[in-house]
């Protein structure tokens, strides 16, 4: 199992831009927002929590279709399905690898990009905390979406259509905590809700994703 994680991390590193691609997208998105909205710092500060969360979400989405598609194409998925590792574990490890290569860098980069958007000082802590709690959910939900579209032509576009609605609760609670944090309000409730969604996604979605992969391999 750890081998699988190692292999996926090495593959992401060797493929070049495994770490960088999502980050670069995040940076560009955040840079483009003021061009569209205008340079007014108060207005930017007001939308910063939402933009940062949305940017992280889209950056996560960008690399999702590669979670299983490559292994499906080169036959590894067939071999893994017949190997003495539970497919649920394979899904969990691949989602974890996706989080380490995509989610974690976003968590680290987000506060820096917050400066560009004049994010309120009080909100930085909550931005990091919610991204840290929320991005694993994005990876696990995404792994489910990738599993259900594995082997389909034009699967990538379809996957976005399937995955984005599933991201709504995570996005709402994540951005809500940062917004409340910026205004100095109480954040415990949405934070706990978000943590609950992440915990639920990590615990249950590998089973649904593994079921989907077994169906797709049939």
């Amino acid at each position: 199992m750890i081998r699988l994680l190692q292999r996926d991390l090495i593959l992401a590193l060797r493929a070049g831009g495994g770490f960088g691609l999502g980050l670069g997208f995040f940076l560009i998105l955040v840079t483009l927002v003021p061009f569209g909205i205008g340079p007014n710092s108060e207005r930017l500060a007001a939308i910063a929590p939402g933009i940062l969360w949305l940017g992280a979400l889209l950056a996560c989405l960008l690399s999702l279709d590669r979670i299983f598609a490559l292994d499906y194409e080169d036959g590894s998925l067939d071999l893994l399905a017949t190997a003495p590792v539970p497919l649920e574990g394979v899904v969990a490890m691949k989602a974890l690898a996706h989080w380490i290569t995509t989610g974690l860098p976003l968590v680290i980069a987000a506060p820096i990009l917050g400066v560009l958007l004049h994010l309120e000082t009080a909100a930085y802590l909550w931005l990091i905390v919610t991204l840290l709690i929320g991005t694993p959910a994005l990876s696990f939900i995404g792994a489910f979406g990738a599993a259900i579209t594995v082997g389909l032509k034009r699967g990538g576009l379809l996957m976005s259509l399937l995955v984005l609605p599933l991201y709504i609760p995570t996005l709402i609670f994540g951005a809500e905590v940062v917004r409340r944090g910026a205004l100095g309000f109480e954040v415990a409730t949405p934070l706990m809700m978000q943590a609950a969604i992440t915990a639920g996604a990590i615990a249950l979605l590998p089973f649904a994703a593994a079921a989907a992969i077994r169906i797709a391999l049939r």
Binding site: R7, R14, D74, D78, L80
Partner: peptide, 12 residues
Amino acid sequence: YAAHADGLKSTL
């Protein structure tokens, strides 16, 4: 089991 595809990673 071994099929047509070898399950090899080209970068490894």
